[in-house]
Simulated scan of single mutants.
Amino acid sequence: MGDGNDYVGKGLSGGRVIVRAPHEFRGDTTKNIIVGNTVLYGAIAGEAFFNGVAGERFAVRNSGATTVVEGTGDHGCEYMTGGTVVVLGATGRNFAAGMSGGIAYVYDEDGLFAKRCNTSMATLEKVLPSAEQIAKVPQSQWHAPVDVKDGGERLTDEQILKTLIERHFRHIGSERAKALLVDWENACGRFVKVLPTEYKRALGELWEKAQNKTVAA
């Protein structure tokens, strides 16, 4: 319990990092800093759950870690090349600058996230309900994090997102996570998926390789 300074989880290569507010804390975690700047800098694997807001340059150069945080400062996911980031609150400006891989799901509570995001290398998409994604989007375009079902079937964005928020609640007892899960149908529709254009292209290649490997086996 407590808080962390700069560089929490720097170079994380496995395991799980949890930073949560003390039980006696009565404030709004989505408006209070829990960890400092450059958290998860250069992380390559593992997962992290933060019961509050991170400072600037959150998950910069992340290449494989999975994380849930309740807000970020400026330059979140800068130069990110892999992994999965879920933000349950507001971000600062210049989010996703230089982001070429991985996925970020951001809860756009005030509808202003598009103005805070740097879309020079990424596009913003709605998180579709699972049934709609299955019907309309080829699996070759789906995010492929470590949470992949047996047989190579990928999870939908909604499945990935809800699973990670459920983990966040289980590990931390987050009130924000609880509120989103209780009103999931409405909450899911307010999430924005940040999809790097280069990663979208690479997903097709990864899918084709996986299918060729399955046929060869």
Rank of each mutant, 00 (worst) to 15 (best):
residue 148 V to Y: 02
residue 93 R to F: 12
residue 44 I to S: 14
residue 116 R to H: 12
residue 61 R to V: 01
residue 209 K to L: 15
residue 203 L to H: 03
residue 170 R to V: 08
residue 105 Y to P: 02
residue 208 E to W: 13
residue 98 G to W: 12
residue 15 G to W: 03
residue 102 G to F: 02
residue 54 A to Q: 06
residue 61 R to G: 00
residue 67 T to M: 14
residue 62 N to P: 03
residue 29 T to M: 04
residue 106 V to W: 01
residue 188 C to E: 15
residue 88 L to K: 05
residue 109 E to Y: 07
residue 199 Y to H: 08
residue 57 R to S: 11
residue 108 D to C: 12
residue 147 D to P: 00
residue 9 G to F: 05
residue 168 H to N: 11
residue 208 E to Y: 14
residue 42 G to H: 03
residue 97 A to H: 11
residue 51 N to C: 12
residue 33 I to H: 11
residue 178 K to F: 08
residue 51 N to F: 13
residue 38 T to R: 14
residue 214 T to D: 08
residue 189 G to L: 12
residue 134 I to G: 01
residue 49 F to S: 07
residue 78 E to F: 00
residue 8 V to F: 03
residue 190 R to L: 14
residue 39 V to L: 01
residue 6 D to V: 08
residue 18 I to V: 15
residue 88 L to N: 05
residue 78 E to R: 11
residue 27 G to E: 01
residue 103 I to P: 02
residue 153 E to S: 09
residue 179 A to H: 08
residue 212 N to F: 09
residue 214 T to I: 11
residue 162 K to Y: 07
residue 162 K to G: 06
residue 111 G to W: 12
residue 187 A to S: 15
residue 129 P to L: 06
residue 215 V to N: 13
residue 113 F to C: 04
residue 161 L to P: 06
residue 197 T to N: 09
residue 205 E to C: 00
residue 91 T to E: 04
residue 170 R to A: 15
residue 170 R to P: 00
residue 60 V to M: 13
residue 91 T to S: 10
residue 53 V to Y: 06
residue 86 V to H: 04
residue 105 Y to S: 01
residue 173 G to L: 10
residue 164 L to F: 14
residue 104 A to P: 01
residue 124 L to H: 06
residue 21 A to G: 00
residue 217 A to C: 10
residue 62 N to G: 10
residue 100 S to N: 09
residue 121 M to W: 03
residue 183 D to T: 13
residue 18 I to H: 04
residue 72 T to V: 12
residue 151 G to P: 02
residue 202 A to P: 00
residue 10 K to S: 13
residue 207 W to Q: 07
residue 6 D to Y: 07
residue 201 R to C: 02
residue 34 I to Q: 05
residue 5 N to R: 10
residue 125 E to P: 00
residue 198 E to G: 09
residue 133 Q to A: 15
residue 16 R to H: 00
residue 99 M to V: 03
residue 63 S to H: 06
residue 26 R to C: 05
residue 130 S to M: 12
residue 45 A to P: 01
residue 68 V to T: 12
residue 31 K to C: 11
residue 194 V to E: 00
residue 41 Y to F: 07
residue 162 K to N: 06
residue 105 Y to W: 11
residue 213 K to L: 12
residue 40 L to F: 12
residue 197 T to R: 13
residue 204 G to M: 05
residue 80 M to S: 07
residue 25 F to D: 13
residue 49 F to Y: 15
residue 78 E to P: 01
residue 192 V to W: 00
residue 85 V to H: 01
residue 71 G to D: 04
residue 50 F to P: 02
residue 32 N to S: 15
residue 180 L to K: 11
residue 157 D to C: 10
residue 88 L to H: 08
residue 162 K to R: 15
residue 168 H to T: 02
residue 99 M to C: 13
residue 51 N to M: 11
residue 195 L to W: 01
residue 62 N to D: 05
residue 7 Y to H: 10
